[in-house]
């Protein structure tokens, strides 16, 4: 999705934003370091806007994509997909020619396991860092892998970060699922993404973890 300055301005002035996301719609900037050559460069570019509902929702509008964030508290899938649909409808109302070519969902889980679990992380998670015993296992360790669901052509990316903090083994389980679309069936496709995300998460956890957290 490529978003024009015209759409950005119309969105900022829209009733949808005024009614639902009244706060903090200031321009945001992004800082990028590029190290692809010996001459490292840094640039700061204006890259879109943040729209805050004031308590639990945030929209990040960039020129390449829009992200909807549920902050503070996850209110359940039905509520989130309903909010997302309102956002998509508002965008399409402002620009009927907009073409959505990819959608994605990202779920971030933090799992804190007491320190005595550090030698037995494999007991709790299917994918763990494999290190020789002599190596300090405090971390941090980062693991990443990509997987594809062939039937619906969904790409899943799992990032896991392991770190020993205070008395806890802290594990970030970061799951993104994405799919190319052709501007149609957006909400139904989000449902499929959610199903695959749930499948991935479930298969990353051992039975001990599910029992521990009553999942």
């Amino acid at each position: 999705m490529l978003i024009s300055d015209g759409l950005v301005n119309k969105f900022r002035e829209s009733d949808f934003v005024k009614d639902n996301y009244p706060q903090n719609n200031e321009g945001i900037s992004v800082e990028i370091s590029i190290n692809e050559s010996l001459n490292s460069q840094k640039v700061i570019k204006k890259d879109g806007y943040l729209f805050n509902s004031g308590k639990d929702k945030l929209i990040n509008l960039k020129y390449s994509h829009i992200t909807y964030h549920s902050i503070n508290k996850y209110e359940g899938w039905e509520k989130e997909i309903s909010n997302l649909k309102l956002l998509i409808d508002a965008i399409i109302l402002l620009d009927k020619t907009i073409y959505i070519n990819k959608i994605s969902c990202r779920y971030l889980n933090i799992i804190n396991l007491l320190e005595d679990s550090k030698k037995d992380l494999e007991k709790y998670l299917v994918v763990c860092p494999k290190t020789p015993k002599l190596i300090n296992r405090k971390g941090p360790f980062l693991l990443s892998f990509t997987t594809t669901e062939a039937e619906n052509e969904i790409i899943g990316t799992v990032n896991e970060k392991f770190e020993l903090i205070n008395n806890y083994n802290r594990v970030i389980v970061d799951i993104s699922v994405e799919k190319n679309v052709d501007n149609s069936n957006i909400i139904n496709t989000f449902e499929k993404l959610r199903e695959y995300k749930n499948l991935l998460f479930e298969n990353l956890l051992r039975l001990e973890t599910k029992t521990l957290f009553n999942l």
């Binding site: 900037s29 992004v30 800082e31 990028i32 370091s33 590029i34 190290n35 945030l58 964030h69 549920s70 902050i71 503070n72 996850y74 990202r106 779920y107 971030l108 889980n109 933090i110 799992i111 804190n112 396991l113 007491l114 679990s117 941090p140 980062l142 970060k161 770190e163 802290r170 970030i172 973890t209 521990l212 957290f213 999942l215």
Partner: peptide, 26 residues
Amino acid sequence: NNLELVDIFNNEIVIGYSKDMKNLNG
């Protein structure tokens, strides 16, 4: 022990990633 679904702006996420991925600040 606890498991929590968090948002992307959660401090633990921002700090947890940014110190390892300095090239992608912001």
